[in-house]
Simulated scan of single mutants.
Amino acid sequence: MTESSSSEPSFCRHSNRADEFLMALPSDVAAKLWGVSKAPTNVLIETEDGRKFIVFVSEAKGMFFLFNGWSDIVTHLGLKTGCFVIFTPLDSTSFRLTYFVNGVSSTCFWTSMLPTASHFTVIPDCILPKSHDYTFTDLISTIFLGNKEFHVKVETFNGKVCFTAGIDVIVTQYQLEAGSYFLFTKWFGHSFHLRIFGKNGLEMNFDVVHVDDADIAPIDSVQDVALRPVAEQANGHIIRFVRMVADYFRLPDDVSRKAKLDLGLKNITIRLLHLNPQKEFPNGTRREKRVKGYRYALRRWSRFMNIAGIKVGDTIYFCFDEIEHVLSVERVVSHVNLS
């Protein structure tokens, strides 16, 4: 995996025809690289094969372009429309250039995030270990993003091997926008490092981003906690909430409503994303009458706790997908007895 040896940000470009003659720097790149000062007149670009090129920088209407000298790089590397290029700063005026033809470069591949409800990523055949039969056996891949680790399911979908369940967790936790770019670098086995570039082309730094660190209020009674979420966040068709485990579990009203339990839906799908391998199974619900209306709970909660490996007092981070009717356990924080 190519990493910057500078504190300057890496950036990418999905090239179009005009980029074969002059390369437009993505918006905000100049400000990130050179601040409010004027851009340098030229930069040094080193390709993966060790060749070095001096490329002049021009400005027009507030935009910066790699101009004279850039066409030499295009010719040398055979870059075409649709190529994906990454500029990794060595310092503020020199860069190492990595390029991808047909989406793949050695052990890496890239994809852009589409504006769809379900997120999955096709893995190129040349990236996959040849020893595994992906048509019959599903498996779990470990994806490292910044200082976090995610478990993502790998399965065959419409004849293609894809990352499926778990990619949506990354998208929702980091609130990624359609048009962002994913760069996967194979590590060992079915493990990958992931770099993400925003719509503006700048690489996003997730080492300083903390997810799932909800502020949990002091809890005096485990039994009371099951009646209310400790923290709750709605994000499109995704609802996230945090609960401390009691000896029963009632669904938040928003989840009950969006799961359409009042319309007769009895089962929802449970996904245990915190396990390796992950597990999935259907789980029944029951309706409990209260003074005004009804509330809903999961059946066979003790079985759920046993399968998930959780205990009373643990804190669970849940995610509910209202479209797929899937309740996922994303993270479990074990209870610590301080007495």
Rank of each mutant, 00 (worst) to 15 (best):
M23Y: 07
H237C: 07
V29E: 04
S92F: 05
F320L: 04
P115G: 02
N276D: 11
C83I: 00
G179H: 12
S180C: 14
Y99E: 11
L263K: 15
L251Y: 09
F21N: 10
H190E: 04
F144W: 07
Q173I: 02
F56A: 03
I73M: 04
G166E: 09
E59K: 06
L261F: 14
V225N: 11
K279S: 09
L273D: 14
I268Y: 13
D133S: 09
V222A: 07
K311H: 13
D215H: 15
K32Q: 13
E330W: 08
H274A: 07
K130W: 02
L128G: 05
R287L: 13
L272M: 12
R300A: 12
V332A: 01
V29L: 03
F87D: 01
F192G: 05
T285G: 08
D262L: 14
I216K: 08
H132E: 08
D224I: 13
E232R: 08
E330Y: 08
M1P: 09
K148Y: 05
I216R: 10
A259E: 07
Q223R: 15
D72A: 12
D212V: 03
S191F: 01
R286N: 09
V104A: 07
A60I: 00
G62E: 13
H193N: 13
H335Q: 12
A231D: 11
L145H: 12
R295K: 15
F192D: 04
P252G: 08
V209E: 03
K80T: 10
C319F: 00
F95M: 06
F182G: 07
L183T: 10
D212F: 08
W110M: 13
K160E: 14
E322L: 05
D28F: 14
L265F: 13
T111K: 15
M63T: 05
H237F: 10
A178N: 08
T185Q: 12
H335G: 13
G309R: 01
F163R: 10
L44C: 06
L44Q: 10
S339D: 15
A226K: 14
L44D: 03
L194M: 12
R195P: 02
L114S: 14
G293Q: 13
G82H: 09
G284F: 04
A60W: 03
T116M: 14
G82W: 06
T88N: 03
I73K: 05
I268S: 11
K279T: 10
L114E: 15
I323K: 11
W301I: 01
